[in-house]
């Protein structure tokens, strides 16, 4: 695989100059995600409106270009979405990173720039780098949903705690 399909100018820009990487003041919720095998960590913060619409997303932490760019792109994408929409996007991204969602047109339409991370599916060791922010967001939203509206949405989660793919 030509590696510059992954390390695109967009990815390098998001990793080197991440617009959404800062410590948010008074976030509605925060969640930490780690990749134990690489030591990468991320703290994701969201500001939600009264009706649980994501108004602002930011992150801090350290990681490789792939995980940082992925987090920054995600933060751009989820603003304006409600919790269910954001979780749908997490599911789609994780499916893409694992090579299970491959429709380029659909991916580009829904994931925008983050669709450039599609090639990560061909680099098994790096999939978890791309997924880190998305898994963290999904877990945070799952916690929030089960705390707020009950556990009716837990059905979408498989037994290993990874967002399910069946009902997408």
């Amino acid at each position: 695989m030509p590696i510059n399909e992954l390390y695109t100018p967009a990815l390098l820009e998001h990793s080197q100059d991440p617009f959404n990487k800062y410590a948010m003041e008074n976030p509605t919720c925060t969640h930490e995600g780690i990749n134990p095998s690489c030591g990468d960590d991320i703290v994701l913060s969201l500001r939600l409106s009264d009706s649980d619409i994501i108004e602002e997303a930011a992150f801090t932490g350290s990681g490789c270009a792939v995980s940082q760019a992925s987090a920054d792109m995600m933060a751009d994408l989820v603003c304006g979405l409600d919790l269910a929409q954001a979780r749908d996007l997490c599911k789609l991204f994780i499916q893409m990173a694992r090579g299970e969602a491959t429709d380029t047109e659909l991916l580009t339409e829904r994931l925008g720039e983050a669709a450039c991370l599609k090639t990560i599916a061909r680099m098994p060791a790096r999939v978890k780098c791309a997924e880190l922010a998305w898994r963290t967001l999904d877990q945070m939203l799952e916690d929030r949903q089960s705390g707020g509206t009950g556990s009716n949405l837990k059905a979408a989660t498989t037994e290993d705690g990874i967002p399910g793919v069946r009902d997408l």
Partner: peptide, 25 residues
């Protein structure tokens, strides 16, 4: 530049190195 990015990019040039905490955190 994060070591994992370095190792992935070196792999593309057929160079194999290790990157991470090397089991010595």
């Amino acid at each position: 530049i994060h070591p994992h990015d370095v190792a992935s990019l070196l792999d593309e040039e057929n160079v194999a190195i290790r990157a991470g905490h090397h089991c010595a955190q």
